[in-house]
């Protein structure tokens, strides 16, 4: 037990879609300033788990706790209001909007009198550019640029900076490095560490062991919807983690298969 409450805690969460059980009895804790890496094979239920945390799905049974109090999210907005921010794979979702405009979607800064509200473009641009630059992305210096003109890594960085700017306490990143090259991915990882340094709890989904090892403090492995392993940094070796990420026996199976089939790749059956 620790002296402080975890920022976010799942207690015996189950989720099923009709007859399909996707999550089984998940209990997990994330503390402030901690990076939790959520690992698991395709279809293990990682996205379903974070959607439950983000208010997209409601748990079928089980409880979600924040700061020692029970919470319940009926819609994504409820989770967002409590400081849970989700950044999806491609970061900015408004490719044809400018950096300044998309940064402030829904919370536009205005000036003007009475009913004549004016969108304060200068302020929006300045705040947005300053927020990304504080994360070390100094190449972004013009808030009038369109999101679609940024690189994948810059978009991710911008989305993370936005979440932090608006007071996120839990940052959920669903495969933020999936489509990125080595250099861009390391940029995003550095920003994850920066967010952690600011005391934010980060939940990070990835399929790449290197990325998980680089930033993770705490690892949780899902296999077919159940929590197969839950351990802290340093408690398991790189090989053990790789093995767990592939669903345990999978790699051993593959070795056996390759041996018995003269090295031909197996057919792709899920």
């Amino acid at each position: 037990m620790t002296d402080t409450h975890p920022v976010l805690e799942l207690r015996n969460v189950n989720k099923s879609f009709g007859p399909i059980d996707v999550l089984h009895d998940i209990s997990l804790k994330v503390k402030a300033g901690e990076v939790l890496c959520l690992l698991g094979d395709n279809g293990a239920g990682k996205s379903t788990l974070i959607k439950t945390l983000a208010g997209v799905h409601k748990p079928t049974t089980g409880e979600i706790w924040m700061d020692g109090g029970r919470v319940s999210f009926d819609r994504p907005k409820d989770a967002a209001d409590r400081g849970i921010a989700t950044v999806h794979q491609f970061g900015g979702t408004f490719p044809l909007m400018t950096i300044g405009r998309s940064f402030f979607v829904g919370v536009e800064p205005t000036k003007g009198w009475g009913p004549f509200k004016i969108f304060d473009r200068k302020k929006a641009n300045a705040v947005a550019v300053k927020a990304v630059q504080s994360f070390g992305i100094t190449r972004i210096d013009d808030g009038d640029r369109l999101i679609g003109g940024l690189s994948g890594g810059e978009r991710q960085s911008l989305a993370i900076a936005r979440a932090v700017h608006f007071g996120a306490r839990v940052l959920i990143l669903d495969e933020p490095t999936a489509a990125l090259g080595v250099k861009q991915a390391s940029h995003v990882l550095r920003i994850v560490l920066e967010a952690k340094k600011r005391g934010i709890a980060v939940i990070f989904i990835t399929h790449q062991v290197t990325h998980a090892m680089a930033v993770g403090d705490h690892f949780a492995v899902l296999i077919r919807g159940a929590l197969a392993a839950n351990f802290m940094r340093g408690e398991k070796s790189r090989e053990e983690i790789t093995d767990l990420m592939a669903g345990g026996e999978a790699l051993a199976d593959l070795d056996a298969y390759m041996e018995s089939h003269d090295g031909h790749a197996p057919d792709l059956v899920s």
Binding site: T93, F94, L96, M97, V105, G106, I118, F119
Partner: peptide, 12 residues
Amino acid sequence: SPWGNWIFALGG
């Protein structure tokens, strides 16, 4: 106006 941003976001 700030509502313009909503319209663009809606279409995005």
